[in-house]
């Protein structure tokens, strides 16, 4: 039981970070970023290249992941999303664009990094073992702590910095924020870059444990969608709650249901559907976010 809880915390902290980036972008621009999983994969590959191949210290490699993804996100927002949002009659066009970008990033990953599964050497060796009740490798604990730390940093940044305040204003009401003197175009770009950066950060963290490959992008996006739906779209606390809940459900499901085959996700989905039928906006979302 303790093992399941520990696994749940570990999975939940990572999932929460993935969901945070997605929900941030959604709150700011009302864009459902299909390419979020692909950004996560790119982040993983950047860390792999710098840490695994060039021998740069892990923290620096992680920083490179963040920077490159932030730049990528900013460029995508500036040259693709912003003009399309301005030019289209329906807001659904952005969804189409996001799907196109997901395909593009998949193609780029395939061309640049190849389709092989990549892994990096462990950061620290050894396994934490508490009386055979909780067994967890040290590097997983480290990654888990780092993930929780970055979530706390992100929340503090959103709460207390000027940029964070502007972003929150933008998420609440675009027009009102503009009237209060927030540079909407600029902060949309910053917000998108920040969301992409979070995806890159998780990718960089997780490459040390699960490795990275091309096919991980799509399923990651799907999981992120589920978390966002559980917690409520566009709400930061909701994304964290959704991530932790999905992490625990998966950990429990894999432990309890393993003898019945791979039906954990079917059960999670059915319960999600019933939950959404009762509470369509998720745990903490605004109605029809």
């Amino acid at each position: 039981m303790e093992q399941i809880l520990a696994n749940g915390v570990y999975l939940g902290s990572q999932y929460a970070m993935i969901a945070l980036g997605l929900t941030l972008i959604f709150a700011l621009m009302n864009v459902l970023n299909f390419a979020h999983g692909q950004m996560y994969v790119i982040g993983g590959f950047v860390t792999y290249t710098f840490y695994g191949q060039l021998g740069v210290p892990f923290v620096l490699a992680l920083l490179m992941s963040c920077i490159s993804l932030a730049i990528l996100g900013a460029l995508i927002e500036k040259f693709l999303f912003a003009p399309v949002i301005k030019g289209s009659k329906r807001e659904e066009s952005t969804m189409l664009l996001a799907a196109g970008i997901a395909f593009l990033l998949d193609a780029l990953i395939l061309l640049i990094f190849g389709e092989k599964q990549r892994g990096v050497p462990k950061i620290i060796d050894g396994v934490f073992n508490w009386d055979f009740r909780v067994i967890m490798p040290y590097d997983r604990i480290l990654i888990c702590v780092l993930a929780i730390l970055s979530i706390i940093c992100f929340i503090c940044f959103m709460q207390y910095s000027k940029t964070g305040r502007a972003l929150r204003a933008l998420a609440q009401d675009r027009t009102a924020a503009q009237l209060m003197g927030v540079n909407v175009d600029r902060y949309s770009m910053i917000g998108f870059a920040l969301g992409a950066m979070l995806a890159g950060l998780v990718g960089g963290l997780l490459v040390t444990i699960t490795g990275i490959n091309l096919g991980m992008g799509g399923p990651t996006s799907i999981k992120a969608f589920m978390m966002v739906m559980i917690g409520g779209a566009g709400v930061i606390s909701g994304a964290i709650a959704g991530g932790i809940i999905l992490g625990f459900m998966e950990a429990i499901g894999l432990a309890v249901l393993s003898q019945y085959g791979d039906i954990t996700y079917l059960l999670i989905f059915v319960s999600l559907m019933i939950f959404l039928a009762i509470r369509p906006q998720g745990l903490m979302g605004k109605p029809w976010g």
Binding site: N30, F225, A233, Y265, P280, W288
Partner: peptide
């Protein structure tokens, strides 16, 4: 169950449905 949802919520849950049917 899910048709009460709208907009991106409906889009997301149908997308998840695809993945779930594949897994099933």
């Amino acid at each position: 169950l899910v048709l009460r949802l709208r907009g991106v919520y409906f889009a997301m849950i149908t997308l998840v449905l695809t993945q779930v049917v594949t897994l099933t």
